[in-house]
Design a protein around this nucleic acid. Structure first.
Lengths: 250, 250
DNA sequence: GTCCACTGGTTCGCATAGCGGACCGAGAGA
DNA sequence: TCTCTCGGTCCGCTATGCGAACCAGTGGAC
């Protein structure tokens, strides 16, 4: 259905460029003005986007948020994970993230904040490459060799100078993660941020999500990473068993 | 654009009924099977929904989450609000909610959890009627009389036995809220939960969002509500001035 | 084993939905 | 005043997507 595809493209373009006008949209999408205009009208009528009062520019509507937030409830993931996340967060005093794999990325769907004044701030919906985040690596390590190869074939771009970009080094790292049961990320996503993560694998099968503890380098000391890793691993397993039986997401 | 409208309906129906099959969808929507099937295929191709591996049932995809989460960033609302929310949460030790008005409801878009073991749990994306939540009442009190009349004309259904359903009582309550600068909700949403809220009004104009403190009745004691109300009011004002200039949402 | 009531998925001719180039009025600079 | 761009609209042609009918697989009930 062509019109649906274009409308979804328009919706996404609006979401990315937040308050944006008709002409700018047509330029970024390379579509005829009237097509975009029609899509906008339809999306607006359905409540997915809204027009700012004064400027006439478009932004995503609240309906999109409501529908999107259904993702984190999917398969009973959030209710199963939140209590564990809170316990974990309270225990270690750092921020706990719940991320879900999506294609070549992981997406942050739930968060329990550290009570500490300094913390790594990542908004819900934030994304990261599979090879460049602790959550991503934890997920990647739980996939088959073929899938890992396919991922690597897609290219390993560097996010920070610490990001792993060498295929062999990544494969070695993934082997280590499989053995240990958790992944460590030292400033590979963001300078000064260290995190440990473990995949959530119902029935030891495909990873449907992952849990991580992240905090500033100054508090995430090297000698703490292994005990923290053990803790996330156990937490991720606890979530996996707490999941409803038919929770085979994806 | 008919096909787009139906596709969006399908998307929404999938989101609401989470893992749902084709036939069930056609029944809930009252649309021909092939139409729904085509919509599903298109939505899936665009990554907005996914099919569970075994059951063949559909659920919303991560892309929907990513696009939807753009709402809370809109107009710089979340970045402006989060620090204040954290300070407020740390100060009073209760859960702080940021909600955005949408039609006849308010929608929860951001949350800072109470560190206490007992807390009111509301998932992001949760909604509440304008007359039956503290956030909703705070927003309602900042609207014009005409808008309030229009809202009341739409009906005031009871959520709990404590919900205000009498138009005159609601109007009186709204006057009180306007004077005090904050709204109180005593178990009108949920039994045992008390909350205080204040609207976020850039330039003292239309409310674009609202902030609330909520907790169990046992901790939200009557003598605390006024000081807490003062605190949310100040916090909401702080957010309003922290907002970027052109943040006229909606 | 044999139904039957389900499921998800596909086909195809017809009408209509929607594509998109051209056009319009309104502001905003120059 | 002229001009550039803005958001928005028109309208004829045609591709698009509608939907009744049709498959094929599945799992109880008897």
């Amino acid at each position: 259905m062509r019109s649906v595809t274009t409308a979804l493209q328009v919706l996404e373009a609006v979401a990315v460029n937040q308050p944006i006008g008709l002409s700018a949209l047509t330029r970024t999408l390379g579509l005829p003005k009237s097509t975009v205009q029609r899509s906008l009208a339809t999306l607006a009528e359905a409540g997915w986007i809204e027009q700012q009062a004064g400027s006439g520019r478009w932004q995503v509507g609240v309906r999109a948020f409501v529908v999107g937030s259904a993702v984190s409830a999917r398969g009973g993931l959030r209710p199963a994970a939140l209590p564990t996340m809170r316990d974990l967060g309270a225990e270690v005093g750092e921020t706990v993230h719940l991320m879900v794999p999506a294609g070549r990325e992981v997406v942050l769907v739930e968060r329990v904040d550290s009570p500490q004044p300094v913390r790594a701030v990542a908004p819900l919906g934030a994304r990261g490459a599979l090879h460049a985040t602790s959550n991503g690596k934890a997920v990647l390590a739980a996939l088959s060799h073929e899938e890992v190869d396919a991922y690597i074939a897609g290219g390993l771009h560097a996010v920070t100078p610490h990001t792993i970009t060498d295929p062999d080094r990544l494969r070695a790292e993934l082997r280590g993660i499989s053995e240990a049961g958790f992944a460590i990320c030292r400033e590979e996503v963001e300078e000064g941020v260290v995190s440990v993560a473990a995949a959530i694998r119902p029935g030891r099968g495909r990873p449907i999500a992952s849990l991580s503890i992240s905090g500033p380098k100054g508090r995430m000391l090297p000698e703490l990473l292994t005990p923290y890793g053990e803790k996330v691993r156990l937490a991720a397993e606890a979530v996996a068993v707490a999941l409803p039986v038919n929770a085979d997401v994806s």
